[in-house]
Amino acid sequence: MRLDVHRSPRDDRVVLVLVGELDLAGAPRLRQAVVAEAAAGERHVVLDLTAVDFIDSTGLGVVVGALRRLRTHDGELSVVCPEPRLRRVFEMCDLDRVFTLHGSVDEVPSERETA
């Protein structure tokens, strides 16, 4: 299994549920999904990494690029990452200071709450 991206619209956000491994092979799939959301004008995209088994620096790079792309379109990106092994990779790259890593999709505040 590589990477599948499932789109799940919820209230004021779109949740992209990632399943598989986020590496050089999976990166284009995620990049493509985020480009589509930004082009469609989605303001708040949530990346749900709960079912991601593995992430490396290439995968982290795509998450960073997703944030840049959405902010360019006045949007925002939230990341759900409950798995300690994955969180550690974010932390080792100091990216836990760029992203708030939420424990579940329900923990992600809405745009209204963060405004």
């Binding site: 490396d56 620096s57 290439t58 982290l60 790079g61 795509v62 960073v64 690029g65 944030l67 840049r68 902010r71 990779v89 080792m92 790259c93 100091d94 990216l95 200071r97 760029v98």
Partner: peptide, 20 residues
């Protein structure tokens, strides 16, 4: 990481991760 410029870089972490 505190700067907006950090978001312009999608690569460049692999070697430092290996060394770490």
């Amino acid at each position: 990481v505190e700067t907006a410029e950090r978001l312009d870089h999608e690569s460049g972490l692999g070697v430092s991760l290996m060394r770490r």
